[in-house]
Amino acid sequence: MTPRTLLTIAGSDSGGGAGIQADLKVFAALGAYGTSVLTAVTAQNTRGVDAVLPLPPRTVAEQLDSVLGDFTVGAVKTGMLGTPAVADVVAEAARDGRLPQLVVDPVLVATSGHRLGVVGAVERLLPYARVATPNCAEAAALTGREVDDVAAMVVAAEALAAGGPEYVVVTGGDVDGDEAVDVLRGGGVTTLLRAPRVDTRHTHGTGCSFSAAIAVRLALGDPVPAAVGAAKEYVLRGLTGARSWELGAGRGPLDHFGWSA
């Protein structure tokens, strides 16, 4: 059977744990064929981001035209966009209906603290998103209010959902507690998604992997709540599988393929 085709629009991660590289791993692990549009080249590893080179908007547009002109894409996810000009290119494609089942991971700051995007660039895409997946720091930047506990996550998810996306998931992996709680808002309903917190330093690329997994499940026909739940379970398996790994000196990658299962 011909696999479903997915598209990721994001920056590269030379360390392989996040960005385009993580997205393509997730697509393959979940049985989908991955295509990509590169928005920026980064020099990074598990310890942090050393350099970022945004690509010209024309180059991004040419990649988009090449992929969308040949493949029937079932779902699209975006990650690091880099600049407002690149975001405009992607938003135009979304506005024209060329980016089905769009999942927007509003990458603004790397785990290391390095800034990878600007709020204005992300805001250009949110009205076209089927699902947006900000973490607490990104939700705070997008709403202009502090997001540091579950109650604040609920408020942020409701505010962001009112601004355009059909569904919003504010992820709470960075909030202290025995559980990792995500807040899903959509259709006027707020749901708390809970999972046990995994004690591991291998957390690099969790946001990329989560949003990529949602996109795969949407392409396979899952409704959004089911897709989000399946993606959360996938990331939990990736965190658990990698917790004893010794890859890199900083925040290492997930076990995307279940090698440690």
Results as ranks from 00 to 15, higher is better:
Arg47Thr: 15
Thr2Ile: 05
Arg115Thr: 12
Ala159Ile: 14
Thr133Met: 07
Val150Gly: 03
Gly188Lys: 08
Gly164Pro: 00
Trp259Glu: 15
Ala43Met: 11
Thr240Gly: 03
Glu246Arg: 04
Gly258Glu: 05
Val170Pro: 00
Pro3Glu: 10
Gly163Lys: 02
Tyr33Arg: 03
Ser209Leu: 13
Ser66Pro: 00
Met80Phe: 04
Leu193Ala: 08
Ala121Phe: 01
Val168Phe: 05
Val37Ala: 14
Val37Leu: 11
Val147Met: 04
Met80Gly: 12
Asp13Ser: 13
Gly187Met: 12
Leu38Asn: 10
Glu179Gln: 08
Glu62Trp: 02
Arg4Leu: 13
Arg201Phe: 12
Leu247Thr: 11
Ala40Ser: 15
Gly113Val: 12
Phe27Ser: 10
Ala180His: 02
Thr200Glu: 08
Val118Cys: 13
Thr42Pro: 11
Pro253Ser: 06
Glu246Val: 05
Ala161Phe: 03
Asp222Arg: 04
Gly31Gln: 12
Asp50Val: 08
Asp178Glu: 13
Arg217Pro: 05
Val118Ser: 10
Ala110Val: 10
Asn135Thr: 07
Asp13Lys: 03
Val154Asp: 06
Ala230Thr: 01
Ser36Phe: 07
Pro253Gly: 05
Leu247Ile: 15
Gly34Thr: 09
Gly79Lys: 01
Ala40His: 02
Leu218Ala: 09
Arg115Phe: 04
Gly258His: 03
Ala141Ile: 02
Ser244Cys: 11
Ala152Glu: 06
Thr200Gln: 06
Gly177Leu: 00
Leu236Asp: 03
Gly163Pro: 04
Tyr128Ala: 13
Arg98Met: 14
Ala93Cys: 07
Glu62Lys: 03
Asp105Trp: 00
Pro106Ser: 12
Val198Arg: 00
Phe27Ala: 11
Val198Ser: 04
Val131Asp: 08
Pro223His: 12
Ala156Arg: 01
Ser12Met: 14
Leu193Asn: 05
Val26Lys: 07
Gly11Ala: 15
Pro84Arg: 08
Leu81Phe: 02
Ala139Met: 09
Ala226Cys: 05
Ala61Gln: 05
Ala213Cys: 14
Leu142Tyr: 01
Gly74Asp: 02
Asp182Val: 15
Ala91Ser: 09
Thr46Ile: 11
Leu160Arg: 02
Ile20Asn: 04
Val181Ser: 08
Ala93Asp: 07
Ala180Leu: 14
Val86Phe: 01
Ser12Glu: 06
Gly120Asp: 14
Leu24Ser: 09
Phe210Ile: 00
Gly79Thr: 05
Thr39Tyr: 09
Gly221Thr: 15
Ser66Thr: 07
Val150Pro: 01
Gly173Cys: 09
